[in-house]
């Protein structure tokens, strides 16, 4: 495939002449160990072409040759042209294979897919970002955007929770953000030993301490579903409207194009209508058990 074959379409970057399902080879440039089971991969197109642009919150199907494919959100900087960045936790067969790759290896990429965070709707408003564990990965592009165009937004409050200090992603970057005076970032862990001098407690415990004007604020929340449920309830209690709170949902995905049926969540295909959805739409569905 020559460089002429990589003209990026806005929503997808499928190889011309091949079905949407066919991945495009990307070269692994850099691999960074984030935690014991999580790595951040930096990828460039193997054909020398351009990296497709994406909106914060969108995801790609990432393919390990001979193993399979898995949906991974994009964690890079949307405000500048750069390599593709994915942060991946070794959970299943495919994600484990992806975390074991070394620079020089090749993976397949198709995407980006899905609806991202409604960043435009946040302009001129206070922004509350709540991330739990790996949930920071799809929110990092939001932080790049907020920081990159800081004057477009009101107060920025970030709460980042993880299970333990050893589970904190992007540690040095988070420390940098904490030092900024134009935003507030609280980090909390569920439990810690004596070497940790930061906050201990679940993310919801930090929310009363966030400051925002509920009448003109939006919240972007990503983490385990149960955490998002508690956080959304707490934000609602703080006066945020249901359609000002946005969650990124996760479901099993095989195709990413609303055809395999796996990611259905009530009437929604998480891959197509999501993964980012308003709490207004999700609230009635979150009440169903095992949906």
């Amino acid at each position: 495939m020559g460089p002429e074959s990589v003209a990026a379409s806005p929503t997808s970057d499928a190889v011309p002449g091949l079905p949407e399902y066919a991945p495009r080879p990307f070269l692994l440039q850099d691999r960074r160990q984030e935690t014991s089971d999580t790595v951040t991969l930096t990828l460039v197109p193997a054909d020398g072409g351009t990296v497709p642009s994406f909106r914060p919150g969108q995801f790609n199907m990432v393919y390990a040759f001979g193993v399979g494919e898995v949906a991974i959100s994009i964690s890079g900087d949307p405000t500048r042209d750069g390599p593709l960045v994915h942060t991946i936790r070794a959970v299943g067969k495919v994600s484990t294979a992806l975390t074991r790759l070394r620079p020089g290896d090749v993976v397949g990429i198709r995407g980006p897919y899905g609806q991202g965070w409604p960043i435009d709707a946040a302009e001129g408003k206070d922004v509350v970002v709540v991330a739990g564990g790996l949930g920071l990965a799809p929110l990092r592009p939001v932080l790049y955007e907020l920081i990159g165009h800081r004057s477009r937004y009101g107060r920025v409050e970030i709460v980042f929770g993880a299970r333990s200090p050893a589970d904190l992603l992007y540690y040095s970057e988070v420390q940098e953000w904490r030092r900024r005076t134009d935003l507030r970032l609280q980090v909390t862990v569920d439990s810690a030993d004596r070497s940790w001098y930061g906050d201990v407690g679940v993310v919801t415990q930090r929310l009363p301490d966030t400051r925002f004007d509920a009448s003109r604020a939006v919240a972007f929340v990503c983490g385990p579903e149960i955490m998002m449920r508690f956080v959304a309830q707490a934000l609602e209690a703080r006066g945020l409207a249901e359609d000002a709170v946005w969650l990124s949902m996760e479901r099993n995905m095989k195709c990413a194009i609303a055809q395999c049926g796996h990611c259905q969540y009530g009437p929604l295909f998480i891959c197509r209508e999501g993964p980012v959805l308003s709490y207004r739409r999700l609230k009635p569905l979150l009440a169903w058990k095992e949906l």
């Binding site: 495939m1 190889v15 091949l18 079905p19 399902y21 080879p25 193997a46 040759f65």
Partner: peptide, 17 residues
């Protein structure tokens, strides 16, 4: 079969349908 691919110098190459 959705597609097939073989290893190649650029990693792998997806074969036409």
């Amino acid at each position: 079969r959705l597609w097939a691919a073989h290893r190649s110098p650029s990693g792998f190459t997806v074969e036409p349908p």
